[in-house]
């Protein structure tokens, strides 16, 4: 089998050309593609590792924030609960104080109303008593109320005795001013004479007397001299009536 050396040389050259062409068109592009893909995979893995590390950090940060949030929430809850309790206590105290004040005001209003009622009752009673007494006296004895008052006052002067009479007599004698007789109505001259007569007879002396009308006296007659005073008026009866009414009101409001 002869060897064709021209063909040998040509085939060697052909093979070398084929080596160059294969490196140029096959091996290098394929290896480059593989290297690029491996590089991409390495970068992706590096990125994934970085993302994983970052995710771990984020998770730790989230847990830390979560714990801090829970802690703050618990503190705020405790604080809010305490504040609510304090506020509730404050409101309850204020409400209690308001209730007490209202009750006090109510009691005061009730007392004031009671007092007003008493006064009105006294006024009405006085008016009615006078009216009744006046009518009764007029019907039964044909007597005037003022006249009866003067008679009763004179009778009280005459029946005065003991230390009270002595003290009054001393005051009348030592007084520089005339004795003052006040009445809630204008005394008629007959009434004035009866009082003067009763004074003169009781104290056995001519007692100088000065007469005045005082509306503040409640339906009565009063004599005063040098600090000594003797009175008859209807307020004594009214005082008893008032006392009875107050007792009655206290029983009703209790």
């Amino acid at each position: 089998m002869p060897i064709d050396w021209f063909t040998v040389v040509a085939q060697a050259l052909n093979f070398l050309v084929l080596v160059w062409l294969m490196k140029r068109f096959l091996y290098q592009p394929v290896l480059d593609a593989i290297a690029a893909r491996e590089k991409g995979i390495r970068e992706e893995r590096a990125d994934a590792d970085a993302v994983k590390v970052q995710a771990g950090k984020d998770r730790e940060e989230f847990q830390r924030k979560n714990e801090a949030f829970d802690r703050d929430r618990a503190e705020l809850w405790t604080k809010a609960t305490d504040e609510a309790k304090a506020e509730r206590q404050k409101l309850v105290d204020a409400a209690r104080m308001d209730a007490d004040a209202l009750a006090t005001k109510r009691r005061e209003a009730l007392a004031a109303q009671s007092e007003t009622l008493n006064r009105e009752l006294g006024r009405l009673a006085q008016k009615e008593v006078f009216a009744v007494a006046r009518k009764a006296l007029a019907d039964l004895a044909n007597a005037d109320l003022e006249e009866q008052m003067v008679l009763i006052f004179a009778t009280r002067l005459r029946t005065m005795e003991g230390p009270a009479k002595q003290a009054f007599a001393f005051a009348l004698r030592s007084a520089a001013q005339p004795a003052l007789v006040q009445s809630s109505f204008d005394l008629a001259q007959a009434g004035r004479d009866k009082i003067c007569l009763a004074l003169n007879e009781t104290f056995s002396a001519a007692i100088p007397v000065r007469f005045e009308t005082s509306p503040s006296l409640v339906s009565g007659v009063e004599i005063s001299s040098d600090g000594q005073k003797m009175t008859w008026n209807i307020s004594e009866y009214l005082g008893d009536l008032e006392k009875d009414v107050q007792d009655l009101l206290q029983v009703k409001t209790a």
């Binding site: 052909n14 050309v17 084929l18 062409l21 294969m22 068109f25 096959l26 592009p29 394929v30 480059d32 593609a33 690029a36 893909r37 991409g40």
Partner: peptide, 18 residues
């Protein structure tokens, strides 16, 4: 040589690196 070179050239024309 022609077939191998042309085939390689055509096959490696659109290589993907993904």
């Amino acid at each position: 040589i022609f077939v191998l070179s042309l085939g390689s050239k055509l096959l490696t024309r659109k290589l993907s690196s993904t």
